[in-house]
Amino acid sequence: MITLQHFLIIGISLFSIGLTTVIIKKNAILVLLGIELMLNGANVNLIGFSTNDPQIQGQIFSLFVIVVAAAEAVVALAIVVRVYQYFNTSNVDEPKELKG
């Protein structure tokens, strides 16, 4: 029997790995990957909780999370590409001015 704890442990590990990735990586794309990992960790939690829910609200909510993640990824990538065009780097540390 797969218990709720199984889901939660995987959710947490995904979330904390994502968090670490966001903090320690320099490349902007990898930071984005970390954010996606965190979102997935949250989603695993939601699915885990909805396994016992006859209203499966968790599933519906995770659908919205996925939609938001898609929108977020698109905009973030557009910004990364734009920043690369302007500063000629995809390193998150280097752009230090807001002008542009």
Partner: peptide
């Protein structure tokens, strides 16, 4: 790619987990 803030990141992640 290179890493930075290695200590803080790993510490935070581990503590959180």
């Amino acid at each position: 790619t290179e890493n930075h803030n290695r200590l803080i990141g790993v510490l935070l992640g581990t503590v959180f987990f």
